[in-house]
Design a protein around this nucleic acid. Structure first.
Lengths: 155, 155
DNA sequence: CAGGGATAGTAAAGGTTTTTGATCATTTGT
DNA sequence: ACAAATGATCAAAAACCTTTACTATCCCTG
């Protein structure tokens, strides 16, 4: 496979992701641990990523994260046990609860945000501001096309 | 987290990957199954992706794929059992074997390549050739920067 | 306003993939 | 020749996600 060359987008995306995610995950792991949040694993961050400030239902988090309710339920239960999230009954629907951050959850969020912002700064510095913005625009265009394709395939 | 906005590259990459990988994985899964390679799972493809034509040692595959030798060893053993890969002793080192594709492995490889090329064609069509090439160049620049960062961090 | 389908969520079990820790054989550098 | 490093494997477990099934509640329609 390797010898087919590395010259298309479909080949590039997974590799770029692999590289970037290792950088980011390492930085997050270290930074969170240093800030006292060593019990947050990458999968937990996927929950945070799709949880709005004001909270959300399990089903909505799962839909946004494109995962099953059970998978998210498992992670949310852990985060609840560890004090990052809490559930409150949804007044408007007796079946549902609203999942939202505790103070500890918000504190962890801030750390994550800071680390990501720092990493972005670093990349921007190396690429130059203009090139960085170009690339961001490119990612957006590509995302739009890929999302359209995904929806069309029902994937 | 979500409310911090979606305006940096570090935020964009995982999402783009999530979308793209769903499209590509679906296409691969279906296409491989149709071609008689229904026993290849996504994790197996990560081995193929980092296995040069001429073969490689387990350790080298693991290093390229940024995974542990054990994780790769597990997948390689499956691929061997299913007839996609074979091991031959490494003449230059009595501890090592060279892992390489069988005919069946090469055939599966071709299918993967064809499917990825088709998907790329589709994205190129939608973006326009010029924009597609711009975006590819952007991904390359970004990759280079991210790899440099990764190596510097030892991640 | 009752019944039925849809929706929110949980439960149990299992499968896949990766990690950790240990061990063994071989090789390499001194 | 010997110690340290390296290639590889084994065993156990953790992490993560899926499938299947189920309960409780909601909402629509007749």
């Amino acid at each position: 496979m390797e010898e087919h060359g590395d010259f298309t987008i479909a080949w590039h995306i997974p590799r770029l992701y692999g590289w970037a995610s290792r950088v980011v995950e390492t930085q997050l792991q270290d930074g969170l641990a240093a800030a006292g949040f060593g019990d947050l694993r990458p999968a937990h961050l996927r929950v945070f990523e799709h949880l709005p400030r004001h909270g959300a239902r399990l089903t909505d988090i799962a839909r946004r994260a494109q995962a099953t309710k059970q998978a998210i339920g498992y992670l949310v239960a852990e985060l609840e046990r560890r004090g990052y999230l809490e559930r409150v009954p949804d007044a408007s629907d007796g079946r549902a609860s609203i999942i939202r951050r505790t103070d500890r959850g918000r504190a962890a969020d801030e750390v994550v945000f800071t680390i990501l912002a720092r990493e972005d700064q670093e990349w921007r510095r190396r690429l130059g501001s203009k090139r960085y913005d170009d690339i961001l625009a490119a990612l957006r265009d590509l995302s739009a096309v890929v999302v359209a394709r995904r929806e069309e395939l029902g994937a």
